[in-house]
């Protein structure tokens, strides 16, 4: 038998309401899903779906894409739950819902878990369990391997963690075919090789932030010069991988020419980052590479998308 007693030492209703949370609006919860990152996930997954051989009903493909997007968003929410302490220190992330006091850590955890499980189960029911398993692995890899383990323990965090961001086109392909093949793996490796120079260019500019947050990003641990060398190295690796869809034969010569040109510009900008080591010129070179890297990936995937759509009409 349980007896509840009222005592005057307990928190008031107002104080309990404070700790109860519940201040997050729908908009705050949407921002937990990292919509900008989600847009990249949607875009790359869409390419994976469209280049895959098979005849999945368009509505089911749309739902598969939605599941991949929500799974990616859910891992973003779980990332914000775990990294709330880091986000509160860094200027770039201080306005996120948890450090801003709009959503409690518990609310973010529950939201992320519900969406993670929901997106995987629905993808399994709508498409197939191979794709659902890959989506579950992607979420697990991003949250457990990258966020909880690698991010705070090694300067190679984003190199290995980048695998999670590179998987959406593979999940998209699997949602149509139920298997994994060379084509989606090439798309995986493009994004995988693209991630380090993309993030390190930003990390060089935001070095003070990462140092304050004690996140062992490469510039913090190995120094700026080593980071600039690594950026150039990965750019040299990325350029030929970017052209691989043409070399392997699932993209046209137009794609091959564009990928070669964009790869050359990418390397040029990485050389500029290597060349200017201090002052405004260094910062400008880093931001120029960071912005161009977004354009690079978008253009490559957009070209594959357009070629596939045009190819469908021919």
């Amino acid at each position: 038998m349980t007896v509840y007693e009222q005592t005057d030492t307990l928190p008031s209703a107002g104080a309990r309401a404070q700790s109860f949370g519940g201040r997050g609006t729908a908009r705050d919860y949407i921002s937990l899903l990292k919509p900008r990152v989600m847009s990249l996930v949607v875009f790359t997954a869409l390419v994976g779906i469209l280049i895959a051989p098979g005849n999945q009903h368009p509505f089911l493909s749309l739902l598969a894409l939605l599941c991949i997007a929500i799974g990616g968003g859910a891992s973003g929410a779980l990332n914000m739950w775990w990294d709330a302490d880091i986000d509160a220190v860094m200027s770039r992330t201080q306005k996120r819902p948890i450090p801003a006091g709009k959503i409690t850590e518990g609310e973010a955890l529950a939201f992320g878990m519900i969406l993670s499980i929901g997106s995987v189960v629905v993808l399994g029911l709508v498409s197939n369990w191979m794709a659902a398993g890959l989506l579950a692995f992607t979420i697990f890899f991003y949250v457990a391997i990258y966020t909880m383990w690698l991010k705070r323990s090694t300067p190679q965090n984003i190199v290995i963690g980048g695998a999670a961001g590179a998987l959406p086109p593979v999940v998209g392909w699997a949602s149509v075919t139920g298997s994994v093949d060379v084509e989606p793996l090439v798309l995986f490796f493009i994004t995988f090789a693209w991630t380090p120079p993309h993030f390190w260019a930003l990390a060089l500019v935001k070095n003070a932030d990462y140092t304050a947050a004690k996140v062992p990003m490469l510039p913090v641990v190995a120094g700026e010069r080593a980071t600039r060398n690594q950026i150039l190295l990965y750019s040299l690796i990325l350029a030929p991988i970017g052209a691989a869809p043409y070399l392997i034969g699932f993209a046209s010569i137009a794609y091959g020419a564009l990928a070669t040109l964009l790869g050359a510009i990418f390397i040029y900008k990485a050389v500029q980052v290597r060349r200017f080591e201090s002052g405004d010129a260094a910062r400008a070179a880093c931001m120029s590479l960071f912005k161009f890297s977004l354009l690079y990936l978008s253009l490559l995937f957009a070209t594959l998308l357009v070629e596939n759509i045009i190819g469908g009409f021919l």
Binding site: V3, Y4, E5, Q6, S12, R16
Partner: peptide
Amino acid sequence: MSTNTTSDAPL
């Protein structure tokens, strides 16, 4: 018998 203490005031 266990005894728990809590406020009766509604949230």
